[in-house]
Write a protein that binds this DNA or RNA. Structure first.
Lengths: 155, 155
DNA sequence: TATTGTTATACTCTATAACTATA
DNA sequence: TATAGTTATAGAGTATAACAATA
């Protein structure tokens, strides 16, 4: 019998997490993209051209890693580098037309996936799901915060 | 205003997925464990001693990788290797007392996290969440199946 | 001949450190 | 002196291929 058990809910959340991550990874891999490379395209599509330093903040990775990511995306023609207009140290990374097309396609796939996965869920269940997840995300922040207070030096 | 939008729900699901994965990874790293190494301990705790070949099936990784994982866990004293009683090719991997303690501690942490994250969610919201996720997981299987039919050669 | 586990090797993702050019 | 990006290097996680011992 199915109980209303927090542990059951957490297990389902982890199950969903794993499957979604796998789905995303496979979908992107079919387009020759890493999850992190896709994040670059997403960030540039959201925020416009960015300096590599800003990209590293956006992605939460090292500036050195941004070099690798942009190298790869430039090689496939998804992004281009250009000198920064005023700061000659900096490099401005922009989506190419092809990169914008990739961003648009990814947005479409997101909608397709959303319809496939949540399209048959009733409006009230959908709202309930979002509300519950929002609550869990808020508690997650508290939980991580309290753990960091107990165990300093970790994230 | 918050709509009942499938795309919003999917975005929240991805957000939760990322945070949960990070939480798990950090928690395990603090114990010196990889996610996959923890899976080994979990599998042995659930199913009892296993031959390495069975572990590779359970984890969905190569037999070679199991060697690496068991090497690491054996080095820290969490598991031990023993000859298989009847098949002299095979190696039986078991949890040590220390490994069982680790499994028990991880189970406790799972309950702690479940209470922290879902403990304040009402029983009916909890049931709704589990039901919705179960539905989404079912559609996910269909969705992945249909994609594989369109795009053979990709698991 | 098929299977279990291993040695040897390599690839991907990401990080740290040292260096160059510019600010 | 500080900052943006790079070259050089390293480490973790995982894979494929060839091989030994056993079935």
């Amino acid at each position: 019998m199915k109980q209303a058990d927090p542990v059951l809910a957490l297990d389902r959340a982890f199950e969903l997490a794993g499957r979604l991550a796998a789905l995303m990874e496979e979908t992107l891999a079919a387009r020759g993209l890493t999850t992190t490379q896709a994040q670059v395209i997403f960030a540039l599509n959201e925020r416009g051209p960015l300096v590599q330093r800003d990209l590293s903040q956006e992605l939460g990775c090292t500036p050195r890693h941004v070099t690798t990511l942009v190298d790869a995306l430039e090689a496939t023609g998804a992004v281009s580098r250009a000198p920064h207009p005023t700061d000659r140290r900096a490099t401005l990374v922009s989506l190419t037309e092809q990169g914008e097309a990739a961003a648009a396609r990814m947005a479409g796939e997101r909608q397709e996936a959303a319809r496939a996965l949540f399209g048959h869920t009733s409006a009230s269940d959908l709202r309930g799901f979002v509300t519950t997840v929002d609550g869990v995300l808020a508690r997650l922040e508290e939980f991580v915060g309290s753990r960091c207070a107990r165990d300093p030096g970790r994230g």
